[in-house]
Design a protein around this nucleic acid. Structure first.
Lengths: 212, 212
DNA sequence: ACTGAATTGATATTATTTTAACAAAAGTTC
DNA sequence: GAACTTTTGTTAAAATAATATCAATTCAGT
């Protein structure tokens, strides 16, 4: 997948939403769609959609539009959803278990191998079809299975140290729920820092703004 | 709080992160900070920070920097965290309960009044200090207490209808976890659509991108 | 009080992102 | 199969956002 110019971050962040909408359209039985129709559905401009898709080489057809199957295939490939990535989850507390029980990792391109927790009471239990192992086994597990990314649902104060260890052991990406902003881009390890509170604060602001 | 020009969405979305970092600095006992030091800490440019803050009228002091207490106060006010907003949660299934048990609503400016669920078995139970009521009581509760926002943790297929009802009854903002993208801006009701999967797909892409 | 260092707020510049415009290509209809 | 419509991919323009610059102001040290 060669690129003339580095694709901007803004475009990358729109890709999951495109993918989601295309999946929905497929589920609805739609076989093709024009940039205009998709724009209307998603609340964007047709221009933006065409330009976004063209960052990766045009996969539409003039006078016809975009074929849903092809679009889904291409977007999935760009997102790397077909790469068979694997993940482990570190910290099976409330938050970790909530993810295990509720979140469909496979829909985002990951197979969740197993979870780890320091609490011996959790050892051997399973949540959402994922079993919990002792943290002691973590290094050997990583060495043996080489998971791509780690989901961090540990207490915040441990985040920097654990993150560093994981990266040293070969983890190549972090989905970080600890509240601590981690930046390991310098090490070539992408991190997605999740802050639900940011979203709610934004909503708080927007609600206040509607009063003016 | 008057604004010469409408503040851009990009700035608004940075505010929660600023607020978070300022809170951390306060907790660390820091009393003042320069735009340069804050920029270094947050991985931004000093210019951007000064310009962002100046959208709301300068609250720094030349030659001194920004006073942490004042900054926290101002950012909190802009975000509306001091407005005493109230929230209700609709749908006390797995996801709803995970939020009730784990998420600190008050840190984002909301007092969570109670939760609602159609399942009679949940009626009267409490999670994270929040009790569950019957969905039948929802209209009268909203009329009586006039909560500002609703947290949607119901099944996706019900989202559009329920959202519409809530708005009709006076709800002024939605924190939407249903997976369905809701757009009620036309009705003057802001919505934050939360899609955890987007974040994980982005990570998947970034991990793939590091291989090239 | 005076000098020098530090820092903001404002303005100017640059870069990025979004939108618009349109020729070229494909589909559709008669 | 010819005329017309639709729609993309591409290029150009406009709008937006980020960065750099610098005068004005404040602080700190002497």
């Amino acid at each position: 997948m060669e690129r003339k110019q580095e694709v901007s971050k803004a475009v990358i962040q729109r890709l999951p939403r495109y993918y989601r909408n295309i999946c929905e359209l497929k589920a609805e039985g739609v076989q093709r769609i024009s940039s205009r129709a998709l724009a209307e559905r998603m609340g964007l401009t047709a221009s933006q959609i065409r330009q976004d898709f063209n960052c990766f080489g045009g996969f539409g057809q003039q006078g016809y539009g975009y074929n849903i199957d092809k679009l889904m295939e291409e977007l999935g490939a760009i997102l790397g959803l077909r790469a068979g990535r694997t993940a482990i989850l570190i910290g099976a507390g409330n938050l970790g278990r909530a993810l295990l029980n509720n979140f469909d990792f496979s829909a985002s391109g990951f197979k969740l191998l197993c979870a780890f927790d320091a609490n011996p009471e959790l050892k051997g239990k399973a949540f959402g079809g994922c079993s919990v192992r002792s943290s002691d086994d973590l290094p050997s597990f990583i060495a043996a299975h080489q998971p791509d990314v780690a989901v961090l649902t540990i207490p915040r104060k441990n985040a920097p140290d654990i993150a560093r260890e994981l990266v040293d052991q070969g983890i190549r990406g972090l989905w970080n729920f600890t509240g601590e902003d981690l930046h390991l881009g310098g090490l070539g390890v992408p991190v997605e820092n999740v802050h639900l509170s940011d979203s709610l604060m934004t909503l708080c602001h927007l609600v206040s703004a509607t009063e003016e």
